[in-house]
């Protein structure tokens, strides 16, 4: 059960961390100054959440590694983030589509985790839920603005959805680790989260005059198993550069 729990915490933490890292890439490039502030704020929340999940994972691992060691010392095959969040930012339509698809799933998962039988998880989730409620509201509004904005923004949204939709397969399919943890009342029920996610996406896409694609199909990759797209390696090369170059340094 402990191994399952560690895997689960890494999934939550790594996903939040990589999404936060992608948001950092927007610094100085956002389409409006107000958005600079907002993107960085969402990123700040997510990196903070990642730290909480990874700290708990590090304690359970109990092998001397810290949350920082987990974030900056593991390679691609050990990362457990969702494939969706490691995809390149693209334009604002791609960025907001990724953000919204993640937020909608994240929101329901955290809601369930607030009732986790593991008190530590429930505590972290309760704090994170407040933040993610706001993230979802914001990204959902942007999906509507871009979807039902101009012809150009609508076309860009269609292209963005086309580009990242296939990675949502991970939001729908449960695996044994999560099923065991969910049965014990520790993790979120995957099917429940998948249904809530689809309902939210359908509602917002409809308001945004965007079609909801048919469910994505399973394919070879799986973030949960550490089988990532080629993008993750570059994210890590950048993010982990300092601790890897100066292994004995104190920052």
């Amino acid at each position: 059960m402990n191994d399952d729990l560690i895997q689960y915490l890494l999934r939550l933490g790594d996903t939040a961390l990589i999404q936060g890292q992608r948001l950092c890439e927007w610094c100085g490039n956002a389409p409006a100054l107000e958005e600079e502030l907002a993107l960085m704020n969402v990123g700040l929340d997510l990196v903070g959440q990642a730290r909480n999940w990874l700290e708990y994972a590090a304690e359970l691992l109990n092998d001397g590694r810290t949350a920082d060691d987990l974030a900056f010392g593991r390679d691609e095959r050990s990362f457990r983030n969702l494939l969706l969040v490691e995809q390149p930012n693209g334009d604002y339509a791609v960025t907001m589509t990724k953000q919204f698809l993640y937020d909608a799933w994240h929101f329901d998962v955290l809601q369930q985790l607030c009732n986790s039988s593991d008190e530590r998880i429930a505590g972290i989730a309760a704090k994170a839920l407040k933040e993610v409620t706001y993230h979802l509201r914001r990204s959902g509004e942007w999906i509507q603005r871009l979807g039902d904005g101009t012809e150009e923004s609508h076309a860009r949204m269609l292209a963005a959805i086309e580009q990242v939709w296939r990675f949502t397969v991970e939001l729908g399919a449960a695996d044994e680790t999560e099923q065991r943890l969910a049965a014990a009342g520790i993790a979120a029920d995957h099917d429940k989260a998948a249904n809530a996610w689809l309902a939210e996406v359908t509602q917002i896409f409809t308001l945004a005059t965007l079609p909801v694609p048919s469910p994505a199909n399973y394919f070879y990759l799986s973030g949960r198993k550490g089988l990532h797209t080629e993008h993750l390696g570059f994210i890590l090369a950048e993010m982990q550069y300092l601790p890897r170059t100066y292994p004995n340094a104190t920052w």
């Binding site: 107000e34 502030l37 907002a38 704020n41 509201r137 914001r138 509004e141």
Partner: peptide
Amino acid sequence: ASMALENAREL
């Protein structure tokens, strides 16, 4: 207005 509220919240 809703964007204004959010921007005001951030700022």
